[in-house]
Amino acid sequence: MDIPDLVRQELGDEEIQAGVTLGDEDAVCFTPTRTLVYRGEGLLSDEKVEAYPFDFERLTISEGRRKTKFTLVYTDGKREFGVPGSRADAVLEQLLEGALRGSTAIGEEESVTGVFRFSELTLVVTEGRLLKHLGSVTWDNDFESYPFDAVTGLDFEEGSVATAVVLTVDGRPERIKAPSNQASAVRKTLQESLFAYHDVSSLADLNAEVAADTEDEPDDGGGLGLESGIDPLVSDEDDGEETATTAAAVAPETGGQTAAPAADAEDGDIAALEQQVARLTEAVEQQSERIEAQEATIETLIDELRQGR
């Protein structure tokens, strides 16, 4: 797009990295440090350009019938500007990219590939990570980041009203629900970014690649460490008792002859282990079902509150 002279004067030593036209002569331009909103001369206003630095602390978006208003909160107050609703997504993507790059939350050359907003959740997909923000505001410093180099699995669970994105990071699954009408775009954007990052061409290849990376890591004893929250099935005391029992069976007091251990000390232990594993599995499944039911109830309450019920 053509850069107005007033914008060139405002730039100083900076360069425009991206721009979004708003119709007529109006436009939004993005430099490495700020957003420049240009308004052409009209019947009721003069030509002007306003600057909005990327170091805002909070961003809120209000959507109207035809226009979308961006409210940026700074340490010394808040500032606002509006754009046509059809241009809001493009402006938001560039606005968040500039803010994230300026705060070093993403790399200097790392671009945003997609921004998705539904209910009180905002997702930002970049070339190197997935960022998630929860809350009534669109964005502030309270967000979570999931780097692609730590991803160990990706899956999608489709439902009637929403699709769950299951992103496993360092072996821990993170479930994110996307409404069905946006799920396809979320899936496409996230897959393409992850595929490009790991240099693969399919979901199966991606999971095989990240699983292979996990297998190359040093063995930590099967994950039953002090922080696992699961007690070892065999304690040190059990080991001592088993050793003594085995020694007694091998060297009984009758004539010094060797006796084979009873196959029944072994079958009983295996059966006990199988029962314990079955109980743990059942408990985990029941807990997962309760969590999903609670999530559905919370989503219903949020929808009803938004409708003024």
Rank of each mutant, 00 (worst) to 15 (best):
G77V: 13
A293W: 07
A259T: 14
E274C: 09
E174T: 14
D140C: 08
A271T: 03
T35I: 08
E15A: 13
K69I: 00
S184K: 14
T168F: 03
L301F: 10
Q276L: 09
A263F: 11
P261D: 08
V91Q: 02
R290L: 09
A265C: 04
Q307F: 02
A259G: 05
L233S: 11
T168D: 06
D303P: 04
E80P: 05
L11G: 09
V125Y: 03
L134S: 13
K67M: 12
K67E: 06
E266M: 12
T113E: 11
V91I: 12
I270S: 00
T122H: 00
E157L: 13
E41M: 09
G12H: 09
D303H: 08
T122S: 05
D205E: 13
Q286H: 08
T300K: 13
A204Q: 14
L224K: 10
F56S: 03
E215P: 01
E50G: 01
L280D: 04
S62K: 09
G23Y: 01
E110I: 08
V186D: 00
I3S: 03
E109T: 11
L203E: 11
L130F: 09
G268I: 10
G23F: 01
I230M: 12
A293E: 11
P261M: 08
I176L: 14
E285C: 06
T113V: 11
L226T: 03
P173I: 02
D269T: 00
R34G: 04
L59Q: 04
P261Y: 02
D46L: 10
L92S: 03
K78D: 13
E41Q: 14
K48M: 06
D5G: 08
Y197D: 03
Q191K: 13
Q257C: 05
R306F: 04
A212R: 15
V161M: 10
T35Q: 09
T122Q: 00
G268T: 12
E47N: 06
P84M: 02
F148N: 03
A208F: 05
L96P: 15
L273S: 06
E299A: 15
P232N: 05
A27R: 14
L206R: 04
Q307A: 13
I106R: 01
V124M: 04
L280Y: 07
A248Y: 02
T297A: 14
A18R: 15
T281Y: 08
T122P: 00
